[in-house]
Simulated assay, not measured.
Amino acid sequence: MKHAVLILNGPNLNLLGTRQPEVYGTTTLADIEQMCRNKATALGIDVAFQQSNHEGALVDAIHNAIGEYHGIILNAGAYTHTSIALMDAMGSVEVPVIELHLSNIHAREAFRHHSYIAPVAIGQICGFGANGYPLAIDAMMAHLGGDT
């Protein structure tokens, strides 16, 4: 069976490349999507992408993943630290989720150290910039039992 993974990006990630490049780098979201497509092609899997600045749209995407995707890679942005709704959505679906961050959230402001996503995620990747996305795809495939 060919695996399908949803890469879900939250608020402000549409501004990657220009938003605080000293923290998030100069790679755009389109660049990251291309990196992920290249990785997916090499692994023989399908990937899809969604980005929203709206919490409810992210919740809907998680719900809609049921039966459609084998895993979700979620960069929830600031919602990581505030959204019980995202945590509840992930806990309500039987789709494994990897939490992803471009920066090392544990080396930043204290409020970023707490994640509502972590308790319902299979793991967390942070601090590797855009390279974290292909790492997350590898980790998801290892979790799903696919070759990496």
Rank of each mutant, 00 (worst) to 15 (best):
R19L: 09
M35H: 11
T26S: 12
L43I: 03
T18N: 14
N38E: 15
E33A: 08
Y24W: 02
V47F: 09
H54L: 06
F49H: 08
P21N: 00
S52W: 09
T26F: 06
Q34P: 03
T28F: 00
A40F: 08
R37S: 06
E33K: 11
A61W: 02
L16Y: 01
T26A: 05
G17H: 09
E22Q: 06
E55L: 07
G44W: 11
V23K: 13
E22H: 08
S52P: 11
C36D: 08
E22F: 09
N53H: 12
M35E: 09
A57N: 11
D31K: 01
G56C: 02
A30T: 13
R37K: 14
G25H: 01
S52V: 00
V23I: 15
T18H: 10
T27V: 12
G25Q: 01
D60C: 05
F49C: 01
Y24Q: 06
T41K: 15
L58V: 01
N53M: 09
V59L: 10
V59C: 13
Q20K: 12
R19N: 03
Q50E: 13
A30Q: 08
G17P: 05
A57E: 14
A57Q: 12
G17C: 00
A61Y: 11
L58D: 03
A57C: 01
E22K: 10
A40G: 07
N38R: 13
A57Y: 02
E33W: 08
I32S: 02
T28N: 07
A57M: 12
G56V: 01
Q20A: 15
Q34I: 00
E33R: 10
T26P: 09
L16Q: 05
S52H: 07
A40C: 01
Q34E: 13
N53D: 13
I45S: 05
H54M: 00
A40W: 02
T27W: 04
E55G: 13
L16P: 10
D60R: 05
I45Q: 12
L16D: 00
S52I: 06
D31L: 03
T41H: 15
N38M: 11
A40N: 08
L58H: 05
D60I: 04
P21R: 05
A40S: 11
T41N: 15
V59T: 10
I45R: 04
M35T: 09
D31C: 00
Q51I: 07
L16W: 00
Y24A: 04
E55S: 07
G44L: 10
D60W: 11
T26Q: 13
T27G: 04
R37M: 00
N53W: 05
P21T: 14
Q34R: 07
N38W: 11
V23L: 15
L29H: 05
N38G: 12
Q50R: 08
D31R: 03
A42W: 13
G25L: 02
E55P: 12
D46I: 12
T28A: 00
T18A: 15
A48P: 04
A61I: 14
R37L: 02
Q51F: 10
Q51P: 13
P21D: 08
I45N: 12
K39G: 08
D46S: 12
G44M: 14
